[in-house]
Simulated assay, not measured.
Amino acid sequence: MLSFSYQNHTLHAESVAITDLMAAYGSPLYVYSRTGIENNWREFDQAFGTHPHLVCYAVKANSNLAVLNILAKIGAGFDIVSIGELERVLVAGGKANKCVFSGVAKTVSEIERALEVGVRCFNVESASELNRIESVAQSVDKQAPISIRVNPNVDAKTHPYISTGLKENKFGVDMNEALDLYQIAQKSEHLSVQGLDCHIGSQITDVSPFLDALDKVLELLKQLNTHGITIHHLDLGGGIGIDYEGEETINIQAYINA
């Protein structure tokens, strides 16, 4: 059953008429479907089968505590971009060791707090940020788990304002510079190399840009292996396009299989 559907010409959220909700709570109001949220997350989770994985919800999409709590209860991970998002996840029952800290402007205090609660990994956007994380980790005598976000220079075939994987976009490290940063991290006593990160944009309706980016990520992975740098996870990002008006979008199972 669809989370939202028309029954007798009246929009329903699951089995509840929106008109009844309006009568009870007033209008305008936001209505979410718990079943819809759980089913969408499980579609990704189940597509991986027995392959080791963690499906992380991007908190920036909706940081409502009830929404986060629903996801925490079913075992979701979380992709955060600020300390405020991290604190909301923790209050909602999420686990710090299932949080990956993305974003381009992590402050010293944010890094300190993330290390204090045991965040799973920092997705590093630049050489200066790598230095900042190392400096903070040293000051608190901890080892910071890091993943470097690379820019694969791939056209996501989406709107230019929500494209993040082209060379001219502001996000991520140039593929040709990534090896040097990984070697710096590998030698540091206060950094622990964990992953390799890539995110190419949002509202993507074709799987081919994801695969093009992954091809480049895997080439870099081979290069890292030859230099004795072990990568424990790939963080593969990008937003699956929403079917707003019957447009063709990505089949999740086919995408994960690919």
Rank of each mutant, 00 (worst) to 15 (best):
E219D: 13
L220E: 05
S202M: 01
L234Y: 10
G239F: 01
A213L: 04
I231M: 08
I229G: 05
L220D: 03
Y244M: 13
I229E: 06
A213P: 07
L234V: 14
G239H: 02
F210V: 08
D212M: 11
V217R: 02
G241N: 10
H232G: 13
G238K: 01
L234C: 12
G241V: 07
I200D: 00
D212W: 00
H233G: 03
G239R: 04
V217A: 10
F210W: 10
G239M: 06
C198N: 02
H227C: 15
D206M: 12
H227G: 09
I240D: 01
Q203I: 04
L236Q: 08
L211G: 03
D235H: 13
L234G: 07
T226C: 11
E245Y: 09
L214R: 06
S208A: 13
D206T: 08
L214D: 05
E245F: 09
G237P: 13
L220A: 09
L220K: 04
T226W: 09
G241Q: 05
Y244K: 11
D235P: 00
V217M: 15
I231Y: 10
L234D: 09
I204G: 00
K216H: 09
L220N: 03
I200E: 00
I229W: 01
G201P: 00
G228A: 11
T230N: 14
I200L: 03
G238E: 06
L224K: 05
H227Q: 14
L236C: 12
D212Q: 12
S202K: 00
G241A: 03
Q223V: 12
D235L: 14
I240S: 02
E245L: 14
I242S: 01
P209V: 05
I240Y: 00
I231H: 07
F210M: 08
I200T: 01
Q203S: 08
K222L: 14
G201Q: 00
I200K: 01
P209Y: 02
G239A: 04
V207M: 14
Q203Y: 07
G239S: 10
S202I: 05
G241T: 04
H232T: 12
I242T: 10
K216R: 14
H199V: 00
G228S: 14
Q223A: 12
H232N: 15
L220S: 06
D215M: 10
H233P: 00
L234A: 06
Q203P: 03
S208T: 11
H233D: 13
G237F: 03
H199F: 08
Q223R: 12
D215Q: 13
D215R: 10
V207Q: 12
D243A: 15
